[in-house]
């Protein structure tokens, strides 16, 4: 009996490929992907700090890469992932505290996360581009 059971593949749930993507499911997996991506970017943060501690030449090398177009695109993607994971994370913390579980609230908070992510990313880059010209 035990053999017959263990030899057969166990049913796996949920079968996500049969579902139409929805805001809820897309934001859920995107929050996880953004978290993994940010963990990879955290390696870059350490490389940056270690280069600065090593000396001006090492720092200049890292800084030159960040200033290059590849570096700027990567930095933009990093800021987008960060704001998305930040907003998505705050949404999760609200759920953890027991708030926002109605279907209406879940969609409202979901679209708020999308809008806030775009707004914060654009705002951050707008300030970053304007600031050096203002202060120097």
């Amino acid at each position: 009996m035990a053999n017959a059971l263990s030899d057969r593949p166990r049913p796996v749930s949920p079968n996500i490929q049969i579902y139409r993507p929805q805001l809820t499911s897309v934001l859920s997996i995107a929050n996880r992907i953004a978290g993994v991506v940010l963990a990879v970017y955290a390696v870059g943060l350490v490389i940056w700090l270690v280069a600065a501690a090593t000396g001006p030449e090492a720092y200049a090398t890292v800084h030159a890469f960040i200033r290059s177009w590849v570096g700027q695109v990567l930095l933009f993607a990093c800021s987008f992932c960060f704001f998305f994971h930040l907003c998505g994370g705050i949404r999760h913390l609200a759920w953890d505290a027991g708030y926002g579980f109605s279907l209406r609230a879940i969609y409202a908070s979901g679209w708020t996360v999308v809008a806030a992510t775009i707004a914060l990313t654009v705002l951050t880059w707008a300030i970053a581009i304007v600031v050096p010209g203002v202060s120097r």
Binding site: Y59, G89, H92
Partner: peptide, 29 residues
């Protein structure tokens, strides 16, 4: 969750600092 709560102010501070110090040289950093 506890580390997430700690990261909210810390990452916002870090991002704001990077934005403010955009264009800084090595000595400034």
């Amino acid at each position: 969750r506890v580390s997430a709560v700690a990261l909210v102010p810390l990452t916002v501070w870090f991002t704001a600092s990077i934005v403010v110090h955009t264009g800084d040289n090595y000595a400034g950093f």
